[in-house]
Each structure stands twice: as C-alpha cells, then as structure tokens.
C-alpha cells in the first residue's frame, strides 16, 4: 500500500535528532506494549506481517504523532478487534473506567515457531548480476516494496534464501515462500541528476517484486 509508513525519499521531516544517553524505554507503557506484541505475535493471534500491516493502516496524522510504540499500540488494538479478541470500543471503555462486557473469545491460534526462511524446490528466476526492474504497483495491501524503488532499474547484488512472502502472509493468504534478492540501485536511477555523488542503495526484494530488464 502507498501509506505514510513508506517514508523513503520524502522531504520535509527536518534533521535527525539524537538523544544522548537515551533510555531503552521512555515510559513504562512503551515497555508493556512491546511485551504484549511479543506475545500476541508469538502465540499466533497475528503474524509479524499482519502486525506490520496494522501499523501501516494507522491514519497518516496519527502515524506521525503517536510515536513508535504508540503506533504499535494502535496496531495491536486494530488487529485484536479484527480477530474478535476485543470488541470495538472495549479499550476506550476500559481506559475511561467503564464496565467492559466479557467477549466470547475466538479459538486460540496455534503458536508459531519463529523463523521465516523456507525451502523452495523451484529454482530462482534471477541470478547475481542480472539487470532487473522493481515493479510498479498500486495494490492496497501489505508489501515490502517501497515506492522509491518501484519502476527503477537495479542489479541483483546477492541472493538470500527463500522466505515467507509478506504480501500474502499479512492477509491470511498463506506463506507462499519466495526467493529474496539483495538488489543494488544507483543514486541517479533513484534520485535523478541531482543525486548525492558517490552513493548507492542496497535493498532486499522478493522475486515477485522484480521483472527482468532486457
């Protein structure tokens, strides 16, 4: 999806603010949210791709103002309502001190073993050194193909293994494992004639994101 999370290349966010001696968490609630996410994802209520897609669906203004763990919290609420663990309004009601009626819970999911690497029998479509183009897409679902590389030409720099495909896994459409490639893009290809000199980009892209360049 072309969401606010897809930040690569955008202008206007100002300078990077480093915080000296930054604590691991800035408030207790942040650490509680992290711990909840580890369990909700670990126990299979939502896989990591569905959780990320939940973050991406945070309305753009909220995305930029809630902060990192605030976005996690919003995604947790969204996903658990979608899974039927929470009814809409439950969290707001509890936060306001109102009574929250018990909800009959859906069946517990199966806990998933951590790890996303898979074996594929089919050979990979591309080889190191191949010229490729990142596909242009406007699908509304989850993807790990950022806008700033879409339509740009690159070269396969190295091969990874095959991995669970986030674009299907986020939506409950199965793991559909795909080969993963590390692709190099030149500065001018991404940013035009005014690109910063002496830089290049490397990014991990799944096979369905790529098409050959003749």
């Amino acid at each position: 999806m072309h969401g606010i999370h897809d930040l690569g290349g955008m202008h206007g966010f100002g300078s990077v603010a480093k915080e000296p001696d930054e604590p691991v968490f800035h408030a207790r609630w942040e650490s509680r949210v992290l711990g909840m996410v580890y369990q909700v994802v670990g126990y299979g209520w939502a896989n990591i791709d569905a959780f990320r897609h939940g973050i991406e669906r945070t309305p753009p203004v909220d995305y930029l103002t809630l902060g990192y763990y605030g976005r996690w919290r919003a995604s947790l609420e969204r996903i658990l309502v979608e899974r039927g663990v929470l009814a809409p309004g439950d969290v707001a009601a509890r936060a306001a001190g109102a009574t929250v009626p018990a909800t009959p819970l859906p069946a517990s999911p199966t806990a998933v073993e951590y790890g996303f690497e898979r074996r594929l029998d089919a050979p990979p479509r591309f080889r190191v050194g191949d010229a490729v183009r990142a596909r242009v897409t406007s699908a509304a679902g989850h993807t790990r193909l950022p806008r700033y590389v879409a339509g740009r030409r690159g070269v396969v720099a190295s091969m990874h293994a095959a991995y669970v495909f986030p674009d299907t896994n986020a939506h409950g459409r199965g793991e559909d494992p795909q080969y993963l490639y590390n692709v190099r893009f030149g500065a001018a290809e991404l940013w035009g004639a005014g690109a910063e000199p002496g830089m290049s980009l490397r990014i991990d892209l799944f096979e369905p994101y790529l098409e050959p360049v003749a």
């Binding site: 690569g8 986030p166 290049s200 980009l201 490397r202």
Partner: peptide, 11 residues
Amino acid sequence: EVRVWDSSAEV
C-alpha cells in the same frame, strides 16, 4: 563510497 542498506525483509 556510501552504501545505504534498506532492511526491507527479514534479513
């Protein structure tokens, strides 16, 4: 030379 690595998958 500057190489920027966008970790866009599970690596």
